[in-house]
């Protein structure tokens, strides 16, 4: 009887490809060899670590040190300084808001680019990267022409808190689009057809099948968006007018601390921005990997 072969547990498990999922590696027995490093691989790892240290780790460590070199009280005073606290809050809130809007708009644009064929598609495809490719000072100027004092639309955001949000929205536009687009393009259309044939409406299919498949890409895009938003400087310089307690963003505070030679305070703000961006990245990573293995 042919079913016997399928029933046999040995043959049933034999062909299972090992999946390198995160949860799986945890279950791997610890007693086995801990590394898979061969000699060339070890060398490559050594070079990578050295490179990474010189470029990233050591400067970061020095930054951390200089943020507290005048003592913890300076660190704390800097962060509780009214003007600085306002700038940090404005930057974080604007970056979060821009990320949220970009998640929706980016997904929408990616969807249109991948799924629809229409005249002028190539133009949009080309334009998406402009905010990213432009020097951000130029980006500020571009925005100023449409949303500045001479706005043909009569919308002037110059010097308002909204200018920060707008500037971040502009410079972070490509991230979600560009991370989601390839994944969406690779999605097997049969999977959607399968969901439809099982009775799922379009909305249900999007919610239960497509979005979960896009979650890692969306998360990656959002992280990039947020990190870039927190650090944006050039566009803000032009558009926000740097009005203390109104439209001044955190990177400007770093700039002005450096101008008055207060390195410790500058480093403090920098460390906070850095920590926020890192935390966001980690959080997203943890959340999406849980989602994937639920």
């Amino acid at each position: 009887m042919p079913t016997r072969a399928l029933n046999n547990p040995a043959s049933a498990t034999a062909g299972i490809p090992f999946s390198p999922g995160r949860t799986r590696s945890k279950r791997r027995p610890r007693s086995r060899r801990r590394t898979t490093l061969t000699r060339p691989a070890g060398l490559a790892l050594g070079i990578s670590v050295l490179w990474f240290s010189l470029l990233v780790m050591i400067p970061l460590a020095l930054l951390l040190i200089s943020s507290v070199e005048d003592g913890w009280s300076t660190f704390w005073d800097t962060l509780t300084n009214v003007q600085t606290a306002h700038a940090i809050r404005l930057t974080l809130v604007s970056a979060l808001a821009a990320t949220a809007v970009n998640l929706v708009m980016g997904l929408l644009i990616a969807w249109v680019l991948v799924r629809d064929r229409f005249p002028g598609r190539w133009l949009i495809e080309l334009m998406i990267d402009i905010p990213f490719a432009l020097p951000s000072l130029v980006a500020g100027l571009v925005l100023l022409s449409l949303y500045g004092p001479e706005s043909p639309l009569g919308i002037n955001v110059l010097g308002t808190p909204a200018s920060v949000f707008l500037a971040l929205l502009f410079v972070t536009l490509p991230f979600v689009v560009r991370t989601v687009q390839p994944v969406l393009g690779e999605l097997d259309r049969d999977v959607e057809r399968a969901a439809h044939s099982l009775g799922a409406s379009r909305a249900t299919t999007v919610r239960r099948i497509i979005l979960p498949a896009l979650t890692p890409a969306l998360a990656a895009g959002a992280t990039l968006c947020f990190a870039r938003g927190v650090g944006e400087f050039g566009a803000l310089v032009i558009l926000s007018g740097n009005r203390p307690n109104i439209s001044e963003g955190a990177p400007m505070r770093i700039q002005s601390y450096i101008e008055v030679d207060n390195t410790a305070a500058a480093a403090t703000v920098a460390v906070l921005l850095l920590a926020t961006a890192l935390t966001a990245t980690l959080l997203v990573e943890v959340l999406t990997s849980q989602e994937r293995h639920r």
């Binding site: 044939s197 009775g199 239960r208």
Partner: peptide, 27 residues
């Protein structure tokens, strides 16, 4: 398709990759 009450099986499985086998069947 949603209202036809058909079962469809595809050449390349069209599995819902983020769901367990049981969840796939339950969909």
């Amino acid at each position: 398709a949603q209202q036809r009450n058909i079962g469809f099986v595809f050449q390349h499985y069209a599995a819902f990759t983020h769901m367990t086998v049981a969840k796939n069947v339950a969909f």
